[in-house]
Design a protein around this nucleic acid. Structure first.
Length: 105
DNA sequence: ATTTTGACTATGT
DNA sequence: AACATAGCCAAAA
């Protein structure tokens, strides 16, 4: 388990209900500005055993990135259950729901 | 060692 | 908004 992985996990866990963060935003907050794809990997590998709110992570365009039908529907359901409105079957309004991760030093 | 593969992103049509 | 392209980077093949 690398320090980067641990930071990513901690950051994702800090996303409040009804808010979302993007892969790139998390990578940057964890100290690797170009590590968005690593965040994806970590999410895939750790979401089960670490109880992460994986559904609060979306791509930079503000859309649900998962392509698999079942997972896609599940993510929609989980987000909507937290009050996040999804438009055009895929888009989340970053204006309203993006979590500005405040890194207090 | 080299290539492929993604739940990605910034930029330009 | 939707494509296309070019970077990106660790894991798996």
């Amino acid at each position: 388990m690398t320090p980067f992985t641990e930071r990513v996990i901690q950051i994702i866990r800090s996303i409040p209900e009804g808010k979302v963060m993007t892969y790139g935003q998390i990578a940057q907050a964890a100290g690797s500005p170009r590590g968005a794809r690593q965040v994806v990997r970590i999410l895939h590998a750790m979401s089960q055993k670490y109880q992460l709110p994986w559904h609060r992570v979306i791509n930079a365009k503000g859309q649900i990135a998962i392509m698999d039908d079942e997972g896609f529907e599940l993510q929609c359901f989980l987000l909507q259950a937290e009050g996040v409105t999804i438009t055009d079957r895929r888009y989340v309004s970053l204006e309203h729901y993006l979590y500005q991760w405040e890194d207090c030093l």
